[in-house]
C-alpha cells in the first residue's frame, strides 16, 4: 500500500488515478498511523514552498516524514520533490525536509520563459531503478519556476532548459521528480510503476 500524503496542496487525485490505473494500492491520507503502516510514501504538491511546508507542519507531518523516509521508499513530486531538500527560496528562505542536501532556487534560464512548462526530455545522469525500462528519448511534463541545485551524484536525470535542470533525484530511500509522472503519459506511468515495484 502506498500512502499519498494529503496535506491540502493542489490536485492530488491525478496521482491516485494513476496508481489505480496501474493496479497499485494507494490511499490519500494525512493520518500518521496509515503513513507509518504504508509500504511507500508519495509526497505530491502544487503551490508555493513556504505555504506547503506550513501545511505539513500544521498537519504534524514533518518529523513523521523525516522518520519514515529512513525506513521506506518516498517519492516527492513537483513541489513535493522540492521540499525534500535542505532549503527553499520561494518568496523567503525556508527550511525543507532536508532529506537530500541541496537548495531550491528560482530558475533563470537565459532567453527562456518561466515557468518551465511543457514536455521536456529526460537525460539520464546515472542509474536509477525508476528509469528501468526507459530509453533515451523520453519526454515528461514539467510545470515549475523553481529548481533544485544539489550534488551531481544525487541527480538521476536532468533536463535541458537553457541550462541543466534537475529532473529526477535519488538518494537512498528518497526519490524526487520535478516533473509530473502522473501527467507524463506512458513514460510517467512507467516511472510510477517502477516506484511501486521497489
Amino acid at each position: 500500500m502506498i500512502a499519498i500524503i494529503d496535506y491540502g496542496a493542489g490536485n492530488i487525485f491525478s496521482v491516485k488515478n494513476a496508481c489505480e490505473y496501474l493496479g497499485v494500492d494507494a490511499l490519500l491520507t494525512n493520518d500518521p498511523v496509515q503513513i507509518e503502516n504504508a509500504d511507500k510514501l508519495i509526497l505530491p504538491g502544487v503551490g508555493a514552498f513556504p505555504a506547503a511546508m506550513d501545511k505539513l507542519e500544521k498537519a504534524g507531518l514533518v518529523e513523521l516524514i523525516r522518520r519514515e523516509a529512513q525506513k521506506k521508499p518516498l517519492l516527492g513530486i513537483c513541489l513535493g520533490m522540492q521540499m525534500l531538500f535542505t532549503k527553499g527560496y520561494e518568496f523567503e528562505e525556508r527550511e525543507g525536509l532536508g532529506l537530500i542536501e541541496g537548495e531550491v532556487r528560482l530558475m533563470t534560464p537565459k532567453g527562456l520563459d518561466i515557468p518551465h512548462m511543457g514536455w521536456n526530455r529526460l537525460i539520464k545522469n546515472r542509474e536509477c531503478p525508476l528509469l528501468d525500462g526507459l530509453g533515451d528519448d523520453e519526454y515528461v511534463y514539467f510545470v515549475h519556476s523553481y529548481a533544485a541545485q544539489c550534488a551531481d551524484e544525487d541527480v538521476a536525470a536532468y533536463t535541458d532548459y537553457g541550462t541543466k535542470v534537475t529532473a529526477l533525484v535519488h538518494r537512498g530511500n528518497v526519490y524526487g521528480a520535478q516533473f509530473h509522472p502522473e501527467k507524463s503519459g506512458r513514460t510517467g506511468l512507467s516511472i510510477l510503476k517502477s516506484f511501486a515495484a521497489l
Binding site: 487525485f13 491525478s14 488515478n17 494513476a18 489505480e20 490505473y21 511534463y141 502522473e182 501527467k183 507524463s184 503519459g185 510517467g188 506511468l189
Partner: peptide, 8 residues
C-alpha cells in the same frame, strides 16, 4: 477521462 488518460 482523468482516470484513464495521463496527459494534461
Amino acid at each position: 477521462t482523468a482516470r484513464k488518460v495521463f496527459v494534461p
